Amino acid sequence: MRERQASQDARRAREFEAFVAGAAGRLLHAATLLTAESPDDNPRARRLLTASLAHTYASWDRLRGEDPYDRTRQQLAVRFARGAWHQYGALSWAHPRGRPNTGGVLHRLTPQERLILVLRLFEGVAEEQTAALLGLPLERVRAICARAMANLLHPPREAPPAVAKVVPS
Rank of each mutant, 00 (worst) to 15 (best):
E3L: 12
R4K: 13
Q5F: 15
Q5R: 14
S7G: 11
Q8A: 04
D9A: 13
A10Q: 15
R11T: 09
R12N: 06
A13F: 02
R14G: 08
R14M: 09
R14Y: 06
E15Q: 10
E15S: 03
E17V: 01
A18M: 00
A18K: 10
F19D: 08
F19M: 01
F19I: 11
V20E: 11
V20D: 01
A21T: 11
G22F: 03
G22N: 07
A23N: 05
A24H: 01
G25D: 01
R26Y: 05
R26M: 12
R26F: 12
R26K: 14
L27W: 11
L28H: 08
H29S: 12
H29I: 00
T32A: 09
T32G: 03
L34A: 05
L34E: 03
L34Y: 00
T35G: 08
T35M: 12
A36D: 07
A36M: 07
E37C: 01
S38M: 04
S38T: 05
D40Q: 15
D40N: 15
N42T: 02
N42Q: 14
A45S: 11
R46A: 13
R46D: 08
L48R: 10
L49R: 11
T50A: 13
A51Q: 10
A51V: 03
A51W: 05
S52T: 09
L53R: 05
L53P: 06
H55F: 07
T56N: 07
Y57A: 09
A58G: 15
D61R: 09
D61N: 04
L63Y: 14
R64C: 03
R64E: 15
G65K: 09
G65Q: 05
E66W: 04
E66K: 07
E66D: 03
P68H: 10
P68K: 09
Y69P: 04
Y69C: 00
R71A: 11
R71H: 14
Q74S: 07
Q75H: 14
Q75T: 03
L76I: 05
L76T: 06
A77F: 10
A77G: 08
V78Q: 08
V78A: 01
R79T: 07
F80T: 03
A81G: 11
G83P: 02
G83H: 09
G83V: 05
G83E: 11
G83N: 04
A84S: 13
A84Q: 03
H86E: 12
Q87N: 14
Y88Q: 04
Y88N: 00
Y88K: 08
A90R: 13
W93F: 15
W93T: 14
H95P: 02
P96C: 14
R97S: 13
R99V: 01
P100G: 08
P100N: 13
N101F: 13
N101H: 10
T102R: 13
G104I: 07
G104M: 02
G104N: 06
G104Y: 11
V105I: 12
V105L: 10
H107G: 06
R108H: 15
L109M: 11
L109R: 10
T110D: 05
T110K: 04
T110F: 00
P111D: 04
P111E: 01
P111A: 12
P111S: 08
Q112V: 02
Q112S: 15
Q112A: 13
E113Y: 02
R114W: 10
R114S: 00
R114N: 00
L115E: 13
L115I: 04
I116M: 06
I116F: 06
I116A: 01
V118N: 06
V118W: 03
L119S: 00
L119M: 01
R120E: 03
F122H: 15
F122W: 13
G124N: 07
